[in-house]
Design a protein around this nucleic acid. Sequence first.
RNA 1: GCCCCCUUGGCUCAGCGGAUAGAGCGCCUGGCUACGGACCAGGAGAUCGGAGGUUCGAAUCCUCCAGGGGGUACCA
Length: 550
Amino acid sequence: MKNTISGSITSCSFVGKEDNRPVIVPQEEVIVSPSGVNVGDYTTNVAFQLARRVGLAPQKVAETICKNVIDLPDSIEKVEFAKTGHINFTISARSLQDQIAIILEQGSEYSRQEVGAGKKIHLEFVSANPTGPLNVVSARAAAIGDALARLLGRIGYEVTKEYYVNDHGRQVRLLGESLLARLKQARGEKAEMPEGGYQGEYLSEMAAEIAAAAGEDSPQALSAAAVKKFISLHRESLDGYGVSFDNWFYESKLHADGLPQQAMDELTEKGHTYQKDGAVWFKSTDFGDAQDWVFRRSDAEGSLTYHPIDVAYHRHKYQRGYDRMIDLWGPDHHAHVAVTKAGVAALGYQLDKLDIIIVQQVNLIRGGQKVKMSKRAGEFETMDDLVREVGRDAARYFFLMRSMDAPMDFDLDLAVAKSEKNPVYYVQYAHTRVCSILREAKEREDGFYLRDNAAPDLRLLVEAAELALIRKLNYYPQTVRSSAENLEPHRLPVYLAELATVFHKFYAVCRVLDSENIELSRARLALARATKTILADGLGLLGVSAPERM
RNA sequence: GCCCCCUUGGCUCAGCGGAUAGAGCGCCUGGCUACGGACCAGGAGAUCGGAGGUUCGAAUCCUCCAGGGGGUACCA
């Protein structure tokens, strides 16, 4: 609908001053939604842009444009200019009413758009190390990544969700050594944790089980068994959270194919590395980074650090032919964004295809106090703990409510509260209410559904509350699109909360089931069902359930 | 030191260069003989961290400053 109006504006012309030279309105993004004042459904600022070019006041320009608008689509009831210079468009009631039939017919396809045109997006998220349970930041990233994947899919992208598994290298070896130490300690033998080893209590708890699976007590066998175990635990946690991945990519595969070494050699050949202190450094400062990084250690084997491996991994993504790659990383990887991009650029790949986004920290708040999460055993909250405590719906909704680039306070008390204070219930309750009405309609003798086969007369929906509700429904596709395109899934919960509000207002004012007025009841039932469709679809995109009863 | 993120009512946050900056919580008033009161109506409460700049127009873009957070390993 937005496009239709845009089309009508771009095709109208403005006659300039003395020379009568027609000035065509620029075909830029000129339509914006009105904010604040209730002036119409769409507004445009073209008059401001043209004012200077033609040497007239914006209001005069707006007035002239309004008077010369031609080919106004039927969907627009009126075009007005404001004294500020804005030109406002109001969608006709008729066109709004028709939206209901469209929503009911299209269902979740109502928000389907083809702006992605089948382009392939690679979305990597969570990618936690298989050395411990998933934490709350992983839970945040999982909620966001999963919602983004659905949103991008909805607007026509082909999305691949990938989980990168660090199953190779130093931290894996360390994990095996830590386990061995724990095992020995459990047997009463004297054993020291290796330097920088994994202290977490979960390791002691799992040591015996892992040892049994490993079959032998070598660090190698133990770490392999532990990695396997943690990967399956991660998978379980994510399953319980409703998040699945299309692909689990193992770092060991990169090594098996010799890709990190190859990337390293190539960077050296191209002159992007240098020797210092016995190590090989990559000149990432040449590509805008704040510092250079060691890529090959000075140890006896000349082993590679994490960075060239990650560069190789990203090159592998490029080679797989994605049009765009999006990584969601935790705040602890902050400094690595620049070096990874630098490495990719040094190998000659286009950086504009790659977005590395940092999902910021999560502070758990209980009783108004920050929950302390030290690295010491048992003192950090895992993703499973969180989900167990607040439930999957509240966890996902809370994470998705907030913009991902700001650290967030997660109020545990609010998330568990089964009350009006809890934002996720507010939205779900709207859905439940519709379901309740629909149940009632079925049970009643009035035959709201079965009176006849004719479609309900949507022209009966003329109340302000009814039209306001349809207006909000009509706005849904744009919300989906902007959430997806801007990689800002939090816009959707904001919208859903607004939709719930408009519905609750409608509910307060407009009785849906009225035996005295069957035709109106049927029309309002259609509106209620359309609302249910959008609420359920929106919640579904967020991975949050839309309950029939609460 | 350097890099990144954040700063909007008492609190937690929306806000897409445009009109009178919006929600929720908390606080104060009201509202169920009806399809679920986990709801609705109304009120108080904001010099959008500060100073410059760009612009017809800035919470939004740019620069500087301040405060908060994170990072700055030959760990990942």
